[in-house]
């Protein structure tokens, strides 16, 4: 079982190591993110994620922009005027590893699967690049890797964070969490992380940081069934490019099939009636 390195940064908190069978994940505490982007680089180095485009995005210190096949971690930066001063909010975004994952549900090849760690992984050797997972994801995490020539085997297929599946299998924590200098990214068993996050939130509220909130820590405000990666944010989710209430479209698949069946029945009835009328 993968282990998490280093103690949590909060006083009084202890390191909780996952044991076999635990669902594991990330708690990303944006209130202690220093925006260094070590997570982005450590991820790229471990997973051989290519550098596709070197360009200036004109959005504060963010030149990554968003998660994609070539950016599995993305640190967002936004600046705000606050109480006469200024605030600069940073957060390391990542695939949420939804418990009810639309990308996984809709994948027609089985390239995307749920691992023994309860994470969601794309198998680059299986994916045929059908593109279905891309609009299915409610967080806009997935894209197809395009235009990269040095790893032909992994181009034109969908790619995203694997939570370093290979490292987890080998008993190592994900590269981003290990690198994170301030442990803004914390890896561990999810129940323990959720409890820790709640305590951290309580502390922030006591300190008067009213804007602090947890995002995706529980299932109350979303349908994704809980997330393998959840966040402590300092502003509303939209400021971090997050949906307020993420959906899992496949949750309503039954209704859709029913509607399709009804539509098919109507068509059948129509065609049948037409055929019958034509008998005259």
């Amino acid at each position: 079982m993968a282990v998490s390195s280093g103690p949590p940064p909060y006083p009084g908190e202890v390191l909780v190591q996952p044991v076999a069978g635990d669902e594991v994940g990330f708690f990303t505490d944006s209130s202690i993110c220093i925006g260094c982007k070590a997570c982005e680089v450590a991820c790229k180095q471990w997973n051989n994620v290519p550098v596709d485009d070197i360009r200036y995005l004109n959005s504060s210190y963010d030149n990554t922009g968003e998660l994609s096949a070539n950016s599995w971690r993305h640190v967002s930066f936004f600046e705000q005027k606050r109480d006469g001063g200024v605030a600069w909010l940073m957060n390391s975004d990542v695939c949420k590893h939804c418990k009810h994952a639309a990308c996984l549900d809709v994948c027609p090849t089985g390239a995307i699967f749920r691992t023994e760690f309860d994470t969601v992984v794309v198998q680059a050797d299986v994916c045929n690049g059908c593109g279905y997972c891309i609009p299915a994801c409610p967080f806009g995490v997935l894209t197809r890797r395009e235009g990269v020539v040095d790893q032909p085997a992994e181009t034109h297929v969908a790619q995203k964070c694997t939570m370093c599946y290979d490292r987890l299998k080998g008993g190592d924590e994900p590269a981003c969490a290990q690198a994170c200098p301030t442990k803004s990214i914390q890896f561990g068993p999810l129940p323990a992380l959720r409890e820790r996050a709640q305590r951290r939130l309580d502390v922030l509220h006591q300190e008067g940081v009213d804007s602090a909130r947890l995002y995706l820590a529980d299932q109350s405000d979303n349908e994704i069934g809980g997330a393998g990666a959840f966040f402590l944010l300092l502003d509303e989710p939209a400021k971090y490019r997050y949906p307020e209430r993420p959906i899992t479209p496949t949750k309503r698949l039954g209704g859709m099939w029913l509607a399709a069946a009804a539509a098919a029945a109507v068509a059948l009835a129509g065609v049948g009636a037409a055929a019958a009328s034509g008998r005259r």
């Binding site: 202690i32 220093i34 925006g35 260094c36 210190y61 600069w88 301030t182």
Partner: peptide, 27 residues
């Protein structure tokens, strides 16, 4: 800076005096 952040989490005031508001200032 991890050590500064931990000190801050333990209650130490961290003051940043600088012409610019940087990632240090933000934390």
């Amino acid at each position: 800076f991890q050590w500064v952040m931990e000190a801050k989490l333990k209650g130490a005031p961290v003051i940043h005096v600088d012409p610019r508001f940087t990632r240090t200032s933000a934390n």
